[in-house]
Design a protein around this nucleic acid. Structure first.
Lengths: 555, 555
DNA sequence: CATTTTCGCACCTACGTGGAAATC
DNA sequence: CGGATTTCCACGTAGGTGCGAAAA
């Protein structure tokens, strides 16, 4: 079951994970980011239903979206996504955040499932890239989760943020991602609030929750509330479930945070790996124009217009939430005659027989096996799991990445670079579909308060706040330092391309944090497939939550 | 000031109002519709942000829109618009609705303004037509109102329904609308709930509230929550403002209902009056394809793509609410170089210099004068007011319309039929911009409860409930009977084309109902322009509310 | 020079228009 | 037959794609 190969997976040697993709902290005490992660003020307040540009003069540096405002917070300014942190909070704020234990905050009843896991896995196995532009770009695949265990009668706010995975800057060289230096300072993390928020538990339970309106930007001065990322850096999206009637009653202690290994990505301004490009074209309905006609790309004009029945697009344009039915709004290979409303998940390569052609074999990923200690059961489309070092090193240095050009350099055809990013955790081995457990003392884990009602947080803040370089303040753990290829810089070695290997410590059940500590955001539950015996690959079934002790570089 | 002429207004003789357009009841006691107007169950519950087709199997005969559901009402099923009434309510329900006095229900502090009044007036002067289709068609112009007097900290729900104006069926013959018979039974009235609902008063006050997502259909079995209308029938849209935290706490006694004379229309499946067609083409951005290029219609292909700067479209696609800025989302003559974000109202014919060409003179309406007892002040673009009979007849027969083919038969060029519908009230003269006062005893006015929490109302209901023919049960008043042209049927004479004339009883201040009675829905406040001295024609300024005693055929 | 970013573009989806022909 | 309705269509808006050249 440790197989990681795939025909197109390009070079079995690449099975070793050069990229630490999942920063589940394995260190015992994570004080790092104490300074960075502290209270973050809710500056803009979205609760609007979409990501409208809304270029206007607003208070707090965010557009006041005129849309739905059930909480009547318009006076605070609005945006689809939360603004950055005005600055590091005071220590008093800091202390506030450290109160409580994890047991308090985490709702054990909550279950979250990555709905379009298969599609994410496809990308992840190749090294997901996400375009970031000045005006903002959506993610593809989209974050789409199913929820369980919510109180139907309570109200919840769902949020997403995206946190850096390491402190390295990357470049795509010779069909693989290599570290080129230390990370740029990260902009203040912004929160994307699901437009439905707040909504009752019954509402969230009704159908998968999608975040397709979320947009990424590289514009540090973005005024549209988009999430600001640095190009050529690795990131991890996280989902937060907060039981609260409104934004102001959100308590940091009530944050339930989850992350999926498959959803890590590198932000880019232009695609580097052609396989990723092709995967996007094949699955993103908006990129249909670039699909092959059966004879070489680019003459889409000859394709019969609406051959059978497009319909896979199920975006709810109006509120940007769920797809109308249960159609996946991320992928969906269309052009297939009757796949409308078939509720079929996108990620099944079986269904994409429509135009998989020359450069992207359909069976690309289907030959990859899931290498997990649990059984994936009768998975029709085996989950692709990237390899990563054992979660072993729990010393202060495990977060360090070393560039290893000699490892897994089995480059393939240029069109298909070595898959080296697929859900790997450089720090804690066994990520991907493996639980990120954190056998560390997290009592002092730095955390962040994504939303506060501090009035001072409402002040407009120019995006480029130097004090926001989140990782710069961390001592060592979790924030790996980088060693450039060929160079040897003390304190800056990023362990890349570690040999793949499975850790038996990964189980498929919920793993409680050894020492319950800070309940809220600093801890992040990584989701993984359960003992998936015989569940449909199209619907991520039961999952178990593992507290990954992911202090979340503030994000 | 009683002038009603206009070059294109076609035939001064047409100044007499053949169509009773505004059914402000003048009868002393309005018992009619007692049976019809009673409690209506909230069956579907929208609160979603859009009008997605969402063709699926849903409970209650309405699509369960997955979108925003702040009230957690998902278990009751959803739709953008309220479903019909399951059936006529019991008498107990009826009685419930009759309780209270108007003084209780009506919030005297509330002020509502038709934002795009000028555009509406243009259409109204020609006889507004609204296309209805099986799949649902938006209204154009859109209902767009400005609110004042709301409590910023209270929550409100805004709704719209559309009620029949009379009991006649019409046809367009010889460039004018004539009665052809008795009305078809009306489908159960549906409520369109503004997607922002519920929202704080501050939210609603922020900017004009538009209902552009509202759709009309002629499909009696519509499952999309669209408002069902009969073709060739006259209707009056109404706006309801309800202070409530959620749909279930909405009390019928808290309904504040308003109607604007200018917004009456005849539902059609295809445009009858070419002037209306041209007006739609000229002002609806989505119909740009049909605008002239300067040389004859239909060769839009030669128009430079995006000549200056399209931008007038300001729909908020995401939540379907307000336009981003304050742009009007109804009209807006674009193609003009710099009218972007100029907040200019659409209806100024001055601004439409872009492509007004052969068949629709720009000055078409500008020559029409407002005939109101008050002064319209320095109105740049004079409001067009149609003439109507004095509000005189308050007997039980004033609601009857007679077809008068001899009157105002000054037909014009076929392209421009006689304008005979513009905001006319066949029953109560002086409608249009004149207050609809109801010096009648409304203590027994039948009303309807648009929303109830009765569990039985949640049952699915096939659209065609025979018991829903609202008007069939009314005795006489308010539900006029019709006399077909040339025929004389006792009890069925519809007074059409009554000579225009102004009633001195119309003032421009709020006119309290003589006898405060049923507070809620049966009464409807008609809006009119205030002593508009020198306000911009683009922004409907102060208005006074007149209770028009509009029992609202249940709508 | 190599790498990264930006910009306009053609091509899509989605859907709102009225026209015109077909249908009822 | 004639009016009313339906259906399909071209043509708009709005905006999400990757491409490729240009710029940084």
């Amino acid at each position: 079951m440790l197989l990681l190969q795939g025909n197109n997976y390009s070079g079995g040697g690449s099975s070793t994970n050069p990229n630490s993709y999942s920063s589940s902290s394995t260190h015992s005490t994570s004080h790092m980011y104490e300074e960075d992660l502290i209270s973050r003020g809710a500056r803009g307040f979205p609760l609007s239903h979409g990501m409208l540009p809304a270029p206007q003069a607003y208070s707090f540096g965010f557009p006041v979206h005129p849309a739905h405002d059930p909480m009547g917070l318009s006076s605070f300014g609005q945006s689809q996504q939360f603004g950055g942190y005005p600055s590091f909070s005071s220590h008093s704020d800091h202390k506030r955040m450290l109160g409580g234990t994890q047991g308090e905050a985490m709702d054990k009843n909550l279950k979250i499932t990555l709905e379009n896991r298969d599609l994410w896995t496809k990308f992840s196995s190749l090294g997901t890239e996400m375009i970031i532009t000045k005006t903002g770009r959506r993610m593809f695949p989209t974050l789409k989760v199913g929820l369980e265990g919510l109180d139907p009668h309570s109200k919840y706010i769902l949020l997403v943020d995206i946190v850096p995975l390491d402190d390295c800057r990357y470049k795509y060289h010779n069909s693989e991602w290599v570290v080129t230096g230390k990370a740029e300072p990260h902009m203040p993390g912004r929160l994307y609030i699901h437009p439905d928020s707040p909504a009752s538990g019954s509402h969230w339970l009704k159908q998968p929750v999608t975040f397709h309106k979320l947009k990424l930007t590289n514009n540090n001065l973005d005024q549209n509330g988009h999430i600001i990322l640095n190009s050529m850096h690795k990131y991890q999206p996280r989902v937060h479930i907060v039981q609260a009637n409104d934004i102001f009653s959100m308590r940091w202690t009530s944050f339930n945070t989850y992350a999926f290994d498959e959803t890590t990505f590198i932000a880019v301004t232009a695609y580097q790996n052609e396989q990723i490009t092709q995967l996007k074209i094949d699955h993103n309905p908006f990129a249909k124009g670039f699909r092959d006609n059966g004879m070489g790309r680019r003459d889409h004009r000859l394709t019969l217009k609406r051959p059978a029945d497009d319909s896979i697009i199920d975006f709810d344009k109006d509120d940007g939430n769920f797809s109308k039915k249960q159609k996946n709004d991320d992928d969906t290979i269309d052009l297939k005659p009757n796949n409308k409303n078939d509720m079929k998940e996108e990620s099944d390569s079986l269904n994409k027989s429509d135009r998989s052609s020359d450069d992207l074999p359909e069976t690309d990923l289907s030959q990859c096996h899931v290498n997990k200690s649990g059984s994936t059961g009768g998975m029709h489309l085996p989950l692709v799991k990237a390899k990563s070092p054992p979660l072993a090193p729990q010393s202060g240095n495990q977060g360090v990445c070393n560039y290893n050009s000699s490892l897994s350099n089995s480059s393939l055809s240029k069109g298909y670079g070595t898959a080296c990013m697929g859900g790997l955790n450089g720090v804690n081995g066994d990520q991907s579909y493996y639980p990120h457990h954190s056998p560390v003392d997290r009592s002092n884990t730095s955390s962040f308060l994504p939303v506060t009602t501090s009035p001072n947080l409402l002040q407009p803040q120019s995006a480029v706040s130097s004090s926001l370089s989140l990782h710069s303040l961390s001592s060592m753990n979790q924030m790996q330092q980088c060693r450039l290829p060929g160079t040897s810089i003390s304190n800056t070695d990023c362990a890349l391309r570690q040999t793949s290997h499975l850790s038996s410590t990964s189980n498929y059940g919920l793993r409680a944090s050894p020492t319950p500590q800070h309940p809220s955001l600093p801890s992040c539950t990584y989701m993984q497939t359960t003992q998936g015996t015989g569940y449909s690959p199209h619907l991520a079934p039961n999952v178990h939550m593992m507290n990954m002790n992911f202090p979340g570089p503030m994000a």
